[in-house]
Design a protein around this nucleic acid. Structure first.
Lengths: 202, 202
DNA sequence: TGTACATCAGTGAACGCGCGTTCACTGATGTAC
DNA sequence: TGTACATCAGTGAACGCGCGTTCACTGATGTAC
C-alpha cells in the first residue's frame, strides 16, 4: 500500500508492467504461496488501482505466468553463474545443485510455483506448455553440465537419464526445504553424499 | 451429487463422518489439488447439505486435516506392507521406495497435500504440528528400515541422516511425478540407480 | 398396546466477504497549427 | 506564443459469483409410562 506513487510519465507506461511483476514475485514469497496472491493485493502493493493491472495483463493468469517466467530467468542465471568457471565438472555440478537449493530456500513461494504449480490456476495443458517453455533453458543447461561430467569420466550413463535423477534428488531436498521440513542436513552435505556415491573416479 | 442418499439410522450418525472424509479424499485427487476441494463440493458428493459437515467438523480445516490423517494412515500401511517379509534389507528399502512413489502417482493430490501442504489452509504452526504428527509413524518406520540396512552393512553412516537423504531422493521423484513432469524414467530404475550407488557391499 | 416426548440426523434460507472482472470516466501532457 | 486536441496512464463504482459459516427449523425414530 505505498500510496505515494506518482503516475509514470507519458510514453513509459510499460514500467508499471515490471513493477507489477516484481511486486507479485515478492508477494508470492512473503505470503508463502502463489495461491494467496491476489490481483488486488498486487495492485495495492504497487500503489495502483486493481483495474490498472488490466492495462498490461489480460487477466490474473497472465500476470502469474509473467511472474513464473521472470523467476525462471533469475533461477537459470543464478545456477549458471554458480557453475561457471569451475574446472572440475563434477564440482561445477555440485555447485549448481547448491545454488538450486539456495534459490528454493530463499524464494520458497516462487520455487513451489515454478516446480509444483502452486498458485497458478491455468488448466494443466496450458500451464505445462508455458512452464516447460519457461524452464527449458535451465533444463538444457543442466543436461550440458551432466554431459561434461560424463565426458570427463566422472559419471557413467546416459546424460539425460542422469540429469533426471539429479533433478529428482535436488528437487526433493529443495521442495522439502521450501515447505519448511525441519531435520534436513545442510544442502552441501546432502549433495556431497549423493555425488560422492555417484563419482566413478574414486 | 449422488442425491439418492438415505439418512443414517439413529445412533450411527458417525458414519457420515467417514463418508465425508472418503469423499474429500477422492475429490482431492480428481480435482488434482486440495485447494480446489470445497466444503460444498464434498457435501454434494456425499449427497448431503453443506451444513451437515458441521455436525462432524468444526470447520473446513478440520475436515481437511482429517483427510490428511486418513491418507497418512493408508500411506504408511501401503509402504510397510511393501517392505514386509523381504530378507535383504536393502531390497526391502527399495520396495518401500517404489511403493512410496506409486502412492504419489496414484494419489497425486493427496500426496501433495501431505508433503507440500497444498490445499490445507491452517497457519504454518498448527499445520506443522498436525501434519508432522500424522506423518511420524511413517518416518519412524523409514528410519527403522534404514537402520536395518546399516546393521547389515549395506549402508554406512548415521541412519537418520541416511533416511533424510533417501526421503529427499524419493520425494523429489514422487513430487515431480505427482505434478506430472514427463521425461522421468520408471521409478524402479530411478531407485535402482540410487540404491546401487549407495550399496557398500558391491 | 398406545401415546407423549426426547433425541438424533439432518435441512434450507440467508449472511457477509473477497475475489476477478466490466465499464464508462478523468485529468495530465505532449503535439499540431 | 497560445490554444485546441488527441493520447496516454491510470481511476472508481459496480457486478456477479462461490465460498465458509450461522441459525432456526424439521421430521423420523426409539423409549418411558
Amino acid at each position: 500500500m505505498s500510496s505515494v506513487r506518482r503516475r509514470n510519465p507519458k510514453g513509459s507506461g510499460e514500467q508499471l508492467r515490471a513493477e507489477l511483476v516484481a511486486a507479485a514475485a515478492r508477494l508470492v514469497d512473503t505470503l508463502g504461496d502463489g495461491s494467496k496472491v491476489t490481483l488486488r493485493g498486487v495492485a495495492g502493493a504497487v500503489g495502483v488501482a486493481p483495474t490498472a493491472v488490466y492495462l498490461h495483463f489480460a487477466d490474473r493468469d497472465e500476470l502469474m505466468i509473467a511472474v513464473l517466467e521472470d523467476r525462471f530467468d533469475a533461477f537459470t542465471r543464478q545456477i549458471d553463474d554458480a557453475g561457471a568457471g569451475i574446472g572440475d565438472p563434477l564440482e561445477a555440478l555440485r555447485r549448481r545443485g547448491v545454488a538450486y537449493i539456495h534459490f528454493a530456500m530463499a524464494q520458497p513461494g516462487a520455487y513451489r510455483m515454478m516446480f509444483s504449480h502452486v498458485g497458478v490456476e491455468l488448466d494443466r495443458e496450458d500451464l505445462f506448455k508455458r512452464s516447460i517453455a519457461a524452464g527449458m533453458p535451465s533444463y538444457d543447461s543442466l543436461v550440458r553440465a551432466v554431459t561434461a561430467c560424463v565426458d570427463a569420466g566422472a559419471l557413467r550413463g546416459d546424460p539425460k537419464g542422469l540429469a533426471n535423477v539429479g533433478w529428482g534428488v535436488v528437487h526433493g531436498y529443495a521442495d522439502l526445504a521450501a515447505v519448511g521440513v525441519p531435520f534436513l542436513q545442510p544442502p552441501e552435505e546432502y549433495l556431497g553424499a549423493f555425488l560422492g556415491a555417484m563419482d566413478q573416479r574414486r
